[in-house]
């Protein structure tokens, strides 16, 4: 790192870069959440199912996020593990209205947590209990119960209810993630 970069860093001009993985089942709202977090002029209007993955960037007050928005479709889920090494934080999105597939989300989360690239690293995991606007949506407490989040002892995690279409609850989650990453770095 050059002297100028260091100086810029001290002055807060250049923001630290972090790689974040955005995971979750298909149709849970990963791309919509990332789209909402982008500056309003960069947002797209129509969200289509992601194929493979896409890389998105957005900035918060102190960090510059590079998000790997992974496709959640069954046939692309085996791609996830190839990006675990790069990820410094994980956003896991859950469709709170899909009670039937909560077991599938739990299964994928367990596989993720038991992967050798994740297991022994203390990386923060942010859960979005998305689609809170649905009439029959489960509460974030219920979702964390169903996913047995209380069993995650060695990683900082946080769950927040969200409605990605309106953008509700997203900022709270990202603020938490930012704090976690900053405490980790220092």
């Amino acid at each position: 790192m050059g002297l100028f970069d260091k100086l810029a860093g001290w002055l807060g001009l250049k923001k630290k870069e972090v790689n974040v993985l955005c995971l979750g089942l298909d149709n849970s709202g990963k791309t919509t959440i990332i789209n909402q977090l982008k500056p309003s002029n960069a947002q797209t209007q129509d969200i289509v199912p992601t194929i493979g993955f896409s890389i998105e960037k957005f900035k918060t007050s102190s960090l510059s996020f590079t998000v790997f928005d992974m496709s959640g479709q069954g046939r692309y889920r085996n791609l996830w593990e190839h990006y675990y090494k790069e990820g410094q934080a994980i956003i896991f999105v859950i469709d709170s209205g899909d009670k039937l597939r909560m077991v599938v989300a739990k299964e994928e989360l367990d596989t993720l947590l038991n992967h050798p690239d994740i297991k022994h690293r203390r990386i923060p995991i942010l859960f979005f209990a998305n689609k809170m606007d649905l009439r029959d949506a489960l509460s974030s407490v219920k979702v964390s119960q169903l996913l047995c989040l209380e069993n995650i002892k060695d990683k900082p995690w946080h769950i927040c209810a969200s409605d990605a279409v309106k953008g509700e609850g997203l900022q709270e989650g990202v603020d938490w993630l930012q704090d976690q990453i900053r405490t980790m770095k220092t």
Partner: peptide, 12 residues
């Protein structure tokens, strides 16, 4: 008494 296998919801 009855079995059905296929795509239900979004799960194949």
């Amino acid at each position: 008494t009855s079995i059905c296998f296929g795509r239900y919801g979004r799960e194949d």
